[in-house]
Amino acid sequence: MIRLFNENRYERDAVSTPPNEGEIVSSLASVANRLPRISNEVQASGADLEARGVHAWFGSRHVLADVNLSFPAGRVTALIGPSGCGKSTFLRTLNRMHEFVPSAAMAGEVLLDGVDIYKQGTDVTKIRLKIGMVFQKPNPFPSMTIGENVLSGLKLAQIKRSNKEDLMEECLTRAGLWNEVKDRLNSHGGSLSGGQQQRLCIARALAVAPEVLLMDEPCSSLDPGSTLRIEETIRQLSQSVIVVIVTHNMQQAARVSDYTGFFLTEGGPGRLIEYAPTREIFSRPKDERTEAYVTGRFG
């Protein structure tokens, strides 16, 4: 099924003259419609993440304004928008990675199961245990073996756990990597291909049993084959974990997400322009700016 959509993208890439926007809208809509859906009633993990009135600054530069979004359990949410629209920044406010930039500031609330993760007296390391993250560039720890990489989160967060072997296998299986690496768990993480490294990073993120997995353009440095594998992985994960994925690839958003949020900056800070089921965003967006973006007129 997913392979079909990928071919679809090749078709689009092969078109030498820009197709008219109607064609693209209908092609994206058909992609979205043909996707296997996980019904939103499946509340697998029971966790729930919500952003309320989130603003973000770098120094005096206001980069994100008043974002309200909720991410219920069992749902994959894609965040799309042109470069510099604040979607990655928003993602990083969700697990407090934003504050690593020295001049960064934020306002608003991010509620995980109803509790503000920015509340005074919060241990930020516990927040990041519950809200994991996969980065744009695969970043396994090069000094560790594949197996150690998977379990590195336990060591880093000083979690004791027995039957580590089982956990390792389970996480690698969920990340769709087990069969490729089961015979060389003791070789170094750097010996894998880029796509395998990224799946290793996903397995690593899963090992600490997060409730939410944030993915910041996880496929942007990967080839189409690896991208597909990771998208399959995301679909499977969505049954147990809340997934929020930032992507530049609209086809990808259409393929993997249930809901899509469109971010845009018009000179000032980035804002959430529209948030709706992915199907609607790509077939009948309410905002004309969304339509312009998903049809490729800008961005």
Binding site: F135, S152, K155, L156, A157, C201
Partner: peptide, 27 residues
């Protein structure tokens, strides 16, 4: 020390000390 590895460690719930032990000192 590559920032992406530092961030990877923090994103896994590392404390500063465990990040240093896992990423900075080996590097």
């Amino acid at each position: 020390v590559p920032l992406d590895r530092v961030q990877a460690a923090y994103a896994l719930g590392a404390t500063r000390w465990s990040m240093i032990r896992a990423v900075v000192l080996p590097f």
